[in-house]
Amino acid sequence: MIIELHDAGDPRVADYTELTDVQLRRLREPAEGLYIAEGPRVLRRALAAGHRPRSFLMARKWLSDLNDLLTAYPGVPAFVGSPELLADIIGFNLHRGALAAMHRPDPVPVAKLLAGARRIAVLEDIVDHTNLGAIFRSAAALDVDAVLISPRCGDPLYRRSIRVSMGTVFQIPWARLEDLPAAIVMLRGQGFATAALALTDDSLTIDRLADRKYERLALILGTEGEGLSAATLAAADCAVRIPMGRGVDSLNVAAAGAVAFWACRPAQ
C-alpha cells in the first residue's frame, strides 16, 4: 500500500521522527513496542526471522528494488517521499534505501533461551550500540547460542546496533536480566561454568579456559572502560584474560568478545 508523503509533520510517520536522539529512542521504542530496521539487507533479515512490519519508509527510487517485500505485505503502508522530505522526518540523509518500523518481538523467557545452549554471552552495562552490534555479529558467527544482557545494557534492537550487527541480532536469541549477579548463580545451577573477562591478578589465560573444554560455558563481558563490577566478578567461577603484546593492556570489548567466542567455541 504505497502512500505519497508531502508533509514532514504527517502523524502517520511518527514512528520515524527524531531517530538521531538516542536517549529518546531508547525510551520510546520499547515502550511503544517497535524498533527501526535500516537498509534492505537488515530489513530482509528481520522479515526472514519472522518479525512483522508496521510500515515502510523510502525514497521512490527504491520501490522497484523492494517490490517483492511490498508485494509480500500488501496491507502494510509504504510511505514514499523525496530524499529531502525523508531527511526532515528522520533527521539525517537516508543512504541505505529504506527504513521499516517493525513490531518488537515478544521477550524470550530465559529458561527457553538456555534450553540446549552450550555457549552463551553475558553482557554487563555495555552502552555503546556499535560495540553491542559488533558483539552480536561475532556471537552469530562463532557459535554462541544466546546472549543475556544486564538491566542497564544498551538495546540490541536500537537502529545502530542492528545496523552494525548486519541484522544478526535477529538470529541470536537474547533476554534482558533483572539482576546480573543473581543470574550468574542461576547459570551455575543450570550447569554452566561462568568465566568473567577481566584483568585480575588471579585470572586464567583464555587458552587455559579453552583447554578445560566445558560442555556449557557463559562468557561475561563488562562495560567499556570500567569493565565488570565487583559483584559480577565475585559471582563468576573464574576471571579470564586475553594475553596482550607490545604493551597493550586490553582490547575493545567487542574485539575481546570475538576472541573469546572463537577460542572457547564448542567442539563440533
Score class of each variant (00 low, 15 high):
residue 5 L to M: 03
residue 7 D to V: 08
residue 7 D to F: 09
residue 9 G to N: 10
residue 12 R to P: 07
residue 15 D to M: 10
residue 16 Y to P: 03
residue 17 T to A: 14
residue 18 E to T: 14
residue 18 E to S: 15
residue 19 L to E: 07
residue 19 L to D: 07
residue 19 L to N: 02
residue 22 V to E: 12
residue 22 V to W: 10
residue 23 Q to Y: 12
residue 25 R to S: 13
residue 25 R to P: 13
residue 28 R to Y: 13
residue 28 R to V: 13
residue 29 E to Y: 14
residue 31 A to Q: 14
residue 36 I to P: 03
residue 36 I to G: 02
residue 36 I to K: 04
residue 37 A to L: 11
residue 37 A to C: 09
residue 39 G to N: 01
residue 41 R to H: 15
residue 42 V to C: 10
residue 43 L to N: 01
residue 43 L to V: 06
residue 45 R to H: 12
residue 46 A to K: 00
residue 49 A to R: 07
residue 50 G to A: 03
residue 54 R to G: 09
residue 55 S to T: 06
residue 57 L to C: 02
residue 59 A to K: 13
residue 59 A to E: 14
residue 59 A to Y: 11
residue 63 L to P: 08
residue 63 L to N: 10
residue 65 D to K: 15
residue 71 T to P: 11
residue 75 G to A: 03
residue 76 V to H: 05
residue 86 L to Y: 01
residue 86 L to C: 01
residue 88 D to V: 08
residue 90 I to H: 03
residue 90 I to N: 00
residue 91 G to N: 02
residue 92 F to K: 01
residue 92 F to E: 04
residue 94 L to P: 00
residue 94 L to T: 00
residue 96 R to P: 06
residue 97 G to Y: 04
residue 98 A to H: 00
residue 100 A to H: 03
residue 100 A to P: 00
residue 103 H to E: 15
residue 103 H to W: 12
residue 104 R to G: 05
residue 106 D to M: 12
residue 108 V to G: 11
residue 110 V to S: 08
residue 113 L to S: 05
residue 113 L to V: 06
residue 114 L to E: 02
residue 117 A to Q: 04
residue 118 R to D: 07
residue 121 A to S: 09
residue 122 V to I: 04
residue 122 V to D: 01
residue 123 L to T: 05
residue 124 E to Y: 01
residue 127 V to I: 14
residue 128 D to Q: 05
residue 128 D to F: 05
residue 128 D to C: 06
residue 130 T to M: 12
residue 137 R to T: 05
residue 139 A to G: 09
residue 139 A to Q: 10
residue 140 A to Q: 11
residue 141 A to P: 12
residue 144 V to S: 07
residue 144 V to L: 08
residue 146 A to H: 05
residue 149 I to E: 11
residue 151 P to L: 02
residue 152 R to T: 13
residue 154 G to Y: 03
residue 155 D to F: 08
residue 156 P to M: 08
residue 157 L to F: 14
residue 158 Y to M: 13
residue 159 R to M: 06
residue 164 V to H: 07
residue 167 G to S: 09
residue 175 A to G: 02
residue 176 R to Y: 03
residue 179 D to H: 07
residue 180 L to A: 00
residue 183 A to D: 02
residue 188 R to N: 13
residue 188 R to G: 12
residue 194 T to P: 01
residue 197 L to V: 00
residue 198 A to I: 06
residue 200 T to C: 05
residue 201 D to A: 14
residue 204 L to R: 11
residue 205 T to M: 09
residue 205 T to L: 08
residue 207 D to Q: 15
residue 208 R to D: 14
residue 209 L to C: 01
residue 209 L to F: 01
residue 209 L to A: 02
residue 211 D to F: 13
residue 211 D to T: 11
residue 216 R to G: 05
residue 220 I to W: 04
residue 223 T to N: 04
residue 229 S to F: 01
residue 233 L to K: 04
residue 236 A to D: 01
residue 238 C to N: 09
residue 243 P to R: 11
residue 245 G to L: 15
residue 246 R to T: 13
residue 247 G to V: 15
residue 250 S to I: 09
residue 250 S to W: 08
residue 251 L to H: 10
residue 253 V to A: 08
residue 254 A to S: 12
residue 255 A to E: 09
residue 256 A to Y: 10
residue 256 A to Q: 11
residue 263 A to R: 11
residue 264 C to I: 06
residue 265 R to K: 10
residue 268 Q to S: 14
